[in-house]
């Protein structure tokens, strides 16, 4: 079965193609859209976008590869990224990350058995004064969670249904 984009995604991408001065600028928005729809951007998805946008696959792929927000491996329904850069690590982000992994019984970059969560580290997310913090992405949302505490991990995870 070949992949198809839902009509609303198609029209979104067509709109983005006209939004900027060059149509290549629509690659980032289109890749975000495809990631939302398909979960993971596979070579088939790259092909599909290439056809939809009339941009060579090599160009689509190069943009996909360059940016970290496009997942390179499978993530959970909720992908939790804990910043472990300098300011966050000074106030316990790595210990938080470790506790979170233990709680979910996963290693960094692994997905829980039920597919619900994955955890990874992230570079500075511009939230250094409210550390430890994590960015949680899912199909419908992309949010910051700040001032995280190890003794509140259950409460934190309970937010995600």
């Amino acid at each position: 079965m070949s992949l198809t984009l839902p009509p609303e995604s198609k029209s979104y991408i067509q709109k983005e193609l006209k939004r900027y001065e060059t149509k290549e600028s629509a690659l980032i928005p289109a890749l975000f859209e495809a990631q939302k729809v398909f979960g993971l951007i596979t070579p088939e998805v790259i092909d599909l976008l290439s056809k939809e946008m009339d941009i060579p696959t090599s160009r689509v792929n190069e943009v996909f590869e360059f940016y970290t927000m496009f997942n390179k491996s499978k993530v959970g329904k909720y992908h939790i990224q804990v910043c472990t850069n300098i300011s966050c690590s000074m106030v316990g982000a790595r210990e938080y990350m470790q506790a979170l992994c233990e709680k979910l019984n996963v290693k960094p970059c692994e997905v829980t058995a039920d597919g619900k969560f994955s955890v990874s580290t992230a570079e500075c997310l511009g939230s250094c004064g409210t550390a430890p913090m994590a960015e949680v992405t899912s199909r419908d949302a992309d949010e910051y969670h700040e001032n995280l505490k190890i003794n509140e991990i259950d409460k934190f995870l309970g937010k995600f249904k």
């Binding site: 300098i86 300011s87 570079e123 500075c124 511009g126 939230s127 250094c128 004064g129």
Partner: peptide
């Protein structure tokens, strides 16, 4: 783009 570790004023 505010990516410099330690910086969060633009946000």
């Amino acid at each position: 783009d505010e990516g410099e570790p330690g910086t969060f004023k633009d946000r």
